[in-house]
Write a protein that binds this DNA or RNA. Structure first.
Length: 550
RNA sequence: UGCCCGAUGGUGUAAUGGCAGCACAUGUGACUUUGACUCAUAGAGUCCUGGUUCGAAUCCAGGUCGGGCAACCA
């Protein structure tokens, strides 16, 4: 997973050209989250691009909290955002900034625009202005305040700042072109009045800059050379350029790329919030959520997430990546890195009739089949075992890998054993197996060299630790839950996205740290949950093994 | 509807005027003390129509289809 795939993309091509021409001598990027929600895998794509680009070119990437709307934002998210970015493995060093750091400068810049006759105070209400702006096919009309004198605008703007107007009574507008085919250029709002306490600046301001005004200035002030954002901002770029041009400040440039889309995943902030608020999931860090904290809890690795970002690359094409792509990367990573263990999720009792009742043996079992350096562990074995219910079948076909009456099967790392008879309840259901083992096959191989095709996992009943095991599956039943005009995404929630099992674990698993990842052999990849304790073991299934059903 | 953007196997992504490659997914086979891993192998692609050129996925024109924008959100 560490082999860095050589990457380039259309933005890096531009950077190469900028560096070659001397337009820039260093590369400065930024990741600008608004602290109003948790980061998800879509943000990971942007983070990977922003920080990864800076890394590639030996430049720097700023982390900037884009806190221009105090009504929406909350300190609670700031810590979580930082934790998630660090978890991905990125470091902004001393370059943590806030849009609110620049409120004074932005105010000065607004005045500069007014003095140039490029901004004015507009008293039109929200709905009224919509009328003036008009529709794309027809030019808009000039708002009444547009012709006001500079002095008047200066006075009015100061009155706005000093609280002389009610919220929403007026806004500061850029004076651009009410006839522009780009609606964003029809005198967009720059400042609005909003009496809200800001988490950084408190009650100092009652006017706050709009995104379009704030963002380009933030970039410029920080010396950001390449400001990358998603495609929906493309139509804002002329405004971004216009503001920096009129202000005559350092020219940052904006480049747009397409968002990440994954099958069986919904990333919209609003809908994620809905899942949490309506109790459809356990919270923002529910392991079924595509949030970084949810994915962390699920057991996904930051390396796998970054590798996905590398593979999907950076283009302007709005496609949808199959979740199988990600799952494959995760399995690759987890297969390499995880230690093996044995756990039985749907236990069936086996009695080895010819094994002494009081005997306990410990077998030295490798922690990884291909990596000797990961060592071995001791697993206790006794007369009574748990095996997977699925590992017994009446009249099994020859390709079946498990017990059937008369067939010899290898108990992984222990002995070869043969099933002689089956115990059934009144309904005919199998409730236990009676087997005999071959004492000559210690470790699992027969001295006479006979071939045994089946190997199954097991846990000693006397030593087994009971555990709650949460079996996670896709949150939705369809690839694109947003793709149906009649139904809403919640109609496609997978009722089986979480199943809870009480499993039997090999004893070592009770004592691992929360977050530790394992492959339960023949079952899947699992991760000790945040709430896992030795007294109450709790594991999450990250993914099944390839080729096995959920 | 106006403006902007895009289109390469089922999916994602390379090829920067010169052999259309890689990965995932799918099929088949081998190996296996995990139905895992690994290995081998197969099928499958340049949206359409013209033009420029010795040569076009790439450049040009027109079309088709898909996406975005029209908050005092970001």
């Amino acid at each position: 997973m560490n082999e860095e795939v050589k990457t380039t993309n259309f933005i890096h091509d531009i950077i190469d050209a900028d560096l070659a021409s001397g337009k820039h001598v260093e590369v400065v990027t930024r990741f600008p989250p608004e602290p109003n929600g948790y980061l998800h895998i879509g943000h990971a794509k942007a983070i990977h691009l922003d920080f990864g680009t800076a890394e590639k070119y030996g430049g720097r990437c700023h982390l900037r909290m884009d806190d221009t709307n105090p009504e929406a934002e909350d300190e609670e998210y700031v810590k979580a955002i930082q934790e998630d970015i660090r978890w991905l493995g990125y470091d902004w060093g001393r370059h943590l900034y806030w849009a609110s750091d620049y409120f004074d400068t932005m105010y000065e810049y607004a005045i500069r625009l007014i003095k140039k006759g490029k901004a004015y105070v507009c008293e039109l209400g929200k709905e009224e202005f919509k009328d003036y702006r008009g529709i794309p096919t027809e030019p808009g009309k000039e708002p009444p305040g547009r012709g006001r004198s500079i002095e008047e605008n200066l006075a009015l703007f100061e009155k706005m700042k000093n609280g002389g107007f009610e919220d929403g009574a007026c806004v500061l507008r850029a004076r651009i072109d009410m006839a522009s085919p780009n609606l964003h250029m029809r005198d967009p709002a720059l400042y609005r009045i909003k009496r809200a306490t800001h988490h950084n600046t408190g009650d100092k301001w009652c006017i706050y800059p709009m995104y379009d005004f704030a963002h380009c200035i933030e970039d410029s002030l920080e010396g950001v050379t390449h400001s990358m954002c998603t495609m929906e901002f493309e139509v804002h770029r002329p405004l971004y350029d216009w503001i920096l041009e009129e202000l005559d400040v350092f020219r940052s440039h904006q480049y747009e790329f397409s968002k990440l889309n994954l099958t069986y995943v919904v990333l919209s902030k609003r809908r994620l919030l809905q899942l949490v608020n309506e109790g459809l999931v356990g919270g923002w860090d529910d392991p079924r959520m595509p949030t970084l904290c949810g994915m962390r809890r699920r057991g996904f690795t930051p390396e796998a997430i970054k590798k996905l970002c590398t593979i999907v690359g950076c283009t302007k094409y709005e496609g949808i990546t199959e979740i199988e792509q990600f799952e494959s990367i995760v399995r690759d990573d987890l297969n390499e890195a995880s230690l093996r263990a044995m756990a039985v999720l749907d236990p069936l009792k086996v009695v080895i009739e010819n094994y002494p009742d009081n005997l306990v043996e410990e077998f030295e079992v490798p922690n990884h089949p291909q990596k000797e350096e990961l060592g071995t562990r001791k697993v206790p074995f006794g007369r009574e075992l748990w095996i997977e219910r699925d590992d017994y079948m009446d009249d099994a076909p020859s390709k079946f890998k498990g017990f059937t009456i008369g067939r010899e099967v290898r108990l992984r790392g222990a002995y070869l054993a043969t099933c002689n008879s089956v115990e059934r309840d009144a309904g005919g259901n199998v409730v236990g197996l009676r087997c005999t083992y071959d004492p000559e096959t210690k470790g699992g191989s027969a001295p006479d060299g006979r071939k045994v095709r089946s190997t199954i996992h097991w846990v000693s009943a006397r030593h087994a630790v009971d555990a709650e095991i949460r079996l996670y599956d896709r949150l939705y039943t369809v690839e694109n839950p947003l793709g149906d005009k009649e139904k809403e995404f919640k109609d496609f929630l997978n009722p089986d996205s979480l199943k809870v099992a009480t499993g039997k674990l090999e004893p070592m698993l009770a004592n691992v740290e929360p977050g530790t990842r394992f492959q339960f052999e023949r079952v899947g990849y699992f991760c000790a949950d945040l709430d896992h304790t030795p007294a109450k073991p709790l594991f999450n299934r990250t993914l099944t093994l390839r080729g096995t059903k959920a």
